[in-house]
């Protein structure tokens, strides 16, 4: 049997890798990737605890499913925000070009 601690260790390492990504990345999408790593780490924790404590009730699995759902919604909204910034800056650039022409 694989000891529970191994799973928790992997989750902790993954969590810290995500933190490193969040702290060092300048690109917003890069930060988002770090956040996804952190969420996956928490999910591993949840599933591992569910497996070792209540393999017939599986509350951890349900929790993990909701986390994945929210992560997807969050990614959608966050990326939409980033795209909206991009469109705005694009628009400004194009406007500037028009002003300079005339």
């Amino acid at each position: 049997m694989i000891p529970l601690e191994w799973y928790l260790a992997l989750a902790a390492v993954l969590f810290c890798t995500g933190i490193f990504g969040v702290l060092t990345r300048r690109n917003a999408i890069g930060i988002l990737m770090g956040i996804e790593l952190m969420l996956n780490a928490a999910n591993i924790n949840l599933v591992a605890f569910a497996r070792y404590m209540h393999p017939t009730i599986l509350t951890g699995h349900i929790f993990a499913i909701f986390v994945i759902t929210i992560a997807a919604a969050e990614a959608a909204v966050g990326l939409a925000i980033i795209i909206s910034i991009y469109r705005n800056i694009e628009l400004i650039n194009v406007d500037k070009i028009n002003v300079m022409k005339w």
């Binding site: 799973y7 999408i29 988002l32 990737m33 996804e36 996956n40 599933v47 591992a48 569910a50 497996r51 393999p55 699995h61 993990a64 499913i65 994945i68 759902t69 992560a71 997807a72 990614a75 959608a76 990326l79």
Partner: peptide
């Protein structure tokens, strides 16, 4: 961890949807 359903969900949602979004 014997989490068969969750493994499928992980592949479907994270790789299938979130990665494509990014």
């Amino acid at each position: 961890l014997s989490a068969d359903f969750l493994a499928a969900v992980q592949v479907l949602v994270y790789i299938g949807a979130i990665t494509v979004l990014i």
